[in-house]
Amino acid sequence: MSDDYADVRTGIVGLGNIGRYHADRLVDLGVPLAGGMDIDAEARASFTDHYDAAVYDDYHDLYDDVDAVVITTPNKFHEEYAVAALERGLHVLLEKPLAHTIESARRIADAASTAEGTFRIGFNNRFLNAVQHIRNRIENGELGEVTHVEANYVRRRGVPGRGTWFTRKEISGGGALIDLGVHAIDLSMYLLGYPDVKEVSGVTRSEFGGRDDYAYLKMWGPDSGPGTFDVDDSASAFVRCAGDRTISLETAWATNRPATHEFVVRGTEAAARFDLKDGDLTIHSAGSDGQDHLLDTAVEMRENDTHTDEQRAFFDAITTSRDIGGGIDEAMTVQRIVDAIYRSSEGGGTVTLGDAET
């Protein structure tokens, strides 16, 4: 625990699984958990029993008693809660994605651009030790010019509960792409240095979630059948950025292949391949000194809790005013890429993003 954050009274908006996941880590970090808000009475009762914290059914009352909020509600409600918090001058950590639509995302961005408080989006995977190690190697020039990222975030059967808000487009804004794909897009852009995006081409598919014979195993929620499933369960995309830097993306909740969370970061001097789930990291290079050779170097990393490190960076930014990245500009770039993939899939072609959009 730390006393560094003892003056930042923090609330949770949305007291479901991810809200409690954040609350556990706030307590471990020594952040004062000032309360939580949810419209569901059962969620409020469970939260206050577990954390001995105040609970509210109206976010205005919570906002009166806190300095910062972590927002973990379904995507459709991000705008209402985030904009109100930003207009109150609160610090905001908003779980990904930024919003369920590009229009809603823009309204959050407008509020964040003039807000006094710190705003960060919940791209926790960039805090993985393996990712930070690669980023350090890139900054030191060890990979040369990084030109392409192969990004895979693929489950075999992992729809997060058919019938939950995740599988209803009106509330979620999309399926696997907006749920898992945003992580892969942010990581790829982060390792490329967030260059300007020029063109996006992609296809989203719904091949498994609407089937009566979907093989449900175990995920975030219960399986209620295909009746309300109206989102994508996989996406393939290609993103072209300034300087001919590119991203190839594969993301899926369900597909007939082994699950993979492998990323390959290709540079002119070396490449890095890592697994997002188990942290395995290998550096691939070649040499001509002595005898020509190929070199594969395994790098063993200490495991870390990415949500804890994300929260630590967020509260460090609040208490020191240090820029940690992951702010509104990067969040909007990810949202625009997601929106462009959906538009490309619907229109059957490449979407060009102008300077005003990127």
Rank of each mutant, 00 (worst) to 15 (best):
T101G: 04
L353Y: 07
E269W: 12
E87D: 14
T358Y: 14
N256I: 13
L143S: 06
L93K: 02
F229M: 08
A286Y: 15
V200I: 05
Y5M: 10
S285K: 13
E310I: 15
R162C: 02
A340H: 14
A237T: 07
S2T: 04
R273H: 15
E207L: 09
T268M: 10
F119R: 11
E116C: 07
Y5W: 13
G347C: 08
E80P: 13
A109L: 10
M332Y: 14
P74R: 05
V69D: 12
D213R: 10
V159H: 04
E150G: 00
F274V: 01
I108A: 00
I102L: 07
I328A: 00
R205V: 13
A54G: 00
V13C: 13
F314R: 14
V197Y: 01
Y342N: 14
R135H: 04
D65Q: 07
A130F: 03
M332G: 06
R162E: 01
G354R: 09
T350N: 06
F123A: 07
G16K: 00
A84Y: 11
A111E: 04
E250V: 11
G349D: 13
I138T: 03
K76Y: 04
R107W: 11
H307F: 06
D28H: 08
I247P: 03
G193F: 08
A215K: 03
R135T: 14
R273N: 02
V265F: 06
L217D: 14
D110Q: 06
V264S: 09
H50K: 14
I102D: 13
A298L: 03
H261M: 04
G349W: 04
S344Y: 13
G181T: 03
E150Y: 04
P226V: 01
A53H: 01
S172Y: 12
I134S: 06
K218I: 12
T358H: 15
T147G: 08
A259L: 09
T297A: 05
Y21P: 01
K198Q: 02
A54W: 00
D309H: 03
D212Q: 09
L294G: 15
A111K: 00
L86H: 05
A53Q: 06
T48N: 08
T246R: 10
N256F: 08
D223P: 13
E346N: 05
I328H: 15
D67K: 02
H91V: 02
T260S: 14
D40L: 14
Y56F: 09
V27N: 04
L93T: 07
A34D: 02
E150H: 15
L33Y: 11
H307R: 15
I318P: 00
I283N: 07
Y216R: 11
E142H: 08
D223G: 07
V149E: 06
L26S: 05
R126A: 00
K277G: 05
T333L: 01
Y194M: 10
D212P: 12
E199G: 11
G158I: 04
E250H: 15
